[in-house]
Amino acid sequence: MSLETHLLFLFCVALATFAQCLTGFAFGLILIGLVAVLQLLPLGEVAVVISILTLGNALVTVAGPKPQLDRTILTPLLISSLLGVCLGIWGLGALDGRQIAWLRLLLGGVIILASLMLVLQSKPREQPSSFSAYWVAGGLCGVLNGLFSSGGPPIVYHLYRQPLAYELIRNTLITVFACNAAMRLGLVTVQGQLSLDTLWLSAEALPLVMLLSWLVRRYPPKLSLRAVRLLVFVLLLLAGGSLIAEAVPELLALYRG
């Protein structure tokens, strides 16, 4: 990678970290979307980098006093998402070169869905959802994390519709994403897919992630929630739309041939 490519990658990391600190999610979605659009790294490699950086972000974000968590909510989400990560990793390994375009199309759709969820004002439920709904949301989150370290949409949509406090939702999201990242990283390491180049790239970006996370936590920007959602919405929409625009011609060419 050239110096320009490294700097561009770090800029993408900074944008994703800032969005994550403000919204509680979207780090993986924004980073993998921007990196894929700019064609800086293969999707499989950037997914591993995201897992490492997610752990670093979580360590800084929840550092300090014991975070507020509810075990009755966390347990089904955590168990089902970890099982989903295993399924997603298996699915990623089963894909061949001809199916990469489908993966890009799926990723673009997921990113656009996440962007819409940020601007749609869903009224919270008066009563909590059924226990099974947490298992479904966690499972879908894990599969997406296993595929490309971007499992935010299903679990974010589910939790933000519940009658729960913001701090509880935020801490739950960070905990689930961190555990999913650790599981994915462990599976990738066992499979021998953790390269030295990936480790160096993660080491290069990790100080930036931790520094920005600490700064935003210590000096939160004076932005309205609407402004934050609009900013992240635009970034996600551009990244997802560009991925779909790239994938569709590839798929048409494959099936015509």
Rank of each mutant, 00 (worst) to 15 (best):
P163E: 11
E167A: 10
L168V: 05
L168T: 13
N171F: 04
V176I: 11
V176L: 08
F177G: 06
F177R: 04
F177A: 12
C179N: 10
A181R: 02
A182S: 07
R184L: 11
R184S: 11
L185H: 03
L185C: 08
V188Q: 09
V190M: 07
Q191L: 13
G192L: 06
G192M: 13
Q193N: 14
S195K: 08
S195R: 12
T198L: 15
T198E: 06
L199T: 02
L199Q: 06
W200K: 11
A205Q: 01
A205T: 00
P207Q: 08
L208N: 03
V209L: 03
M210S: 12
L211M: 10
L212K: 06
L212R: 03
S213F: 09
W214F: 15
R218I: 04
R218M: 05
Y219T: 03
P220V: 00
P220A: 08
P220H: 14
R226M: 04
A227Y: 11
A227N: 04
R229I: 05
R229C: 04
L230Q: 13
L231P: 00
L231R: 11
V234H: 06
L235H: 09
L236H: 04
L236N: 13
L236Y: 09
L237I: 05
A239E: 02
G241C: 13
L243I: 14
I244A: 12
A245H: 11
E246W: 11
E246P: 01
A247Y: 10
V248I: 15
V248N: 09
V248C: 13
P249A: 08
L251A: 03
L251Y: 10
L251F: 02
